[in-house]
Nucleic acid binder design. Structure first.
Length: 267
DNA sequence: CGGCAGGTGCGGA
DNA sequence: TCCGCACCTGCC
């Protein structure tokens, strides 16, 4: 299915106009399930007041919230999609992640046309599980070929709804049991696919370079130092706070290019 | 062209 | 439980 979201209403009286496109007619029952799923993925019904309270004593976060107030910890991807993304991010520069992602989508993904757009969606897990390491390696994904296979198999044995109901600790354990998921990926999965606001326990090096500039106005504070500072400032809200700071930077960069950011991000 | 970046699993201490 | 190594490719 293809989904178009359009914002309606206002910050304090928000509403979203949802249009759903399907290869077969979209039934009322489909629509109900889509809306429930969107509510979860875009974190529409959660209370963010704990984050907004931190604004009073943190001017850095205050300026990000000023621009982005109301922004949710959104994640349009499913758990499986994001799992594949974390593997594509592992042990590689961003540019190579892009190359590998394109190759994987063109070979295994589905190209959807709707609403005047042509967009790839991720492949179903079964399609990779039925493929082979050799075929995957031909796409220049290196040793990640094995990770895609094993992670897809492990994913197929999981129940995503069950995982959503678990507490942080139990969820973390279940995710780490997926082959190819370590400390860095588990943070992405918990904060992205499951909206756990605290999930930020390791800082990948490319993010450290960016947060060093944001937090300390210097180029190269260590990942450990960055994590300490985020914990000190934002405590249990550090994952979400970091998301706000990063998105604020992206928007400021988009309005007026920031030199050091262009050098770190290849866009 | 050689050297290096980058997250995870695994084997060994 | 912690440490160090292997893995693969593209960029510098």
């Amino acid at each position: 299915m293809g989904v178009r979201l359009r914002t309606r209403g206002s910050l304090w009286n928000p509403s979203v106009n949802v249009t759903v496109y399907g290869q077969r007619p979209v039934l009322k029952s489909d629509m109900k399930r889509v809306l429930e799923e969107l509510g979860y993925r875009f974190d529409w019904y959660e209370d963010y007041s704990g984050l907004y309270k931190l604004v009073r004593k943190d001017s850095l976060l205050a300026s990000a919230v000023k621009r982005l107030e109301g922004m949710r910890s959104f994640c349009q991807e499913s758990l499986y999609d994001l799992l594949m993304i974390t593997i594509l991010l592992q042990n590689t520069p961003v540019r190579r992640t892009e190359t590998m992602t394109r190759a994987m989508l063109e070979t295994y993904g589905d190209l959807l046309g709707f609403d005047g757009q042509r967009l790839y969606c991720f492949w179903p897990a079964e399609r990779i599980a039925r493929s082979s390491e050799e075929k995957l390696r031909a796409l220049k994904v290196g040793y990640r070929a094995k990770l895609f296979l094993r992670a897809s198999e492990d994913y197929l044995a999981l129940d995503e709804q069950d995982l959503r109901n678990r507490d942080d600790e139990s969820l973390r354990k279940a995710l780490l049991a997926i082959y190819g998921v370590g400390p860095a990926s588990v943070d992405y999965l918990m904060s992205g696919a499951f909206h756990r606001k605290t999930a930020l326990n390791t800082v990948p090096s490319w993010e450290a370079k960016i947060f060093s500039r944001i937090l300390f106005r210097r180029p190269s504070a260590s990942p450990v130092r960055i994590l300490e500072e985020l914990k000190r400032r934002y405590g249990a809200w550090r994952g979400l706070a970091a998301h706000y700071l990063f998105m604020d930077l992206c928007w400021r960069h988009r309005e007026k290019p920031i030199d050091w950011f262009s050098k770190l991000m290849p866009y």
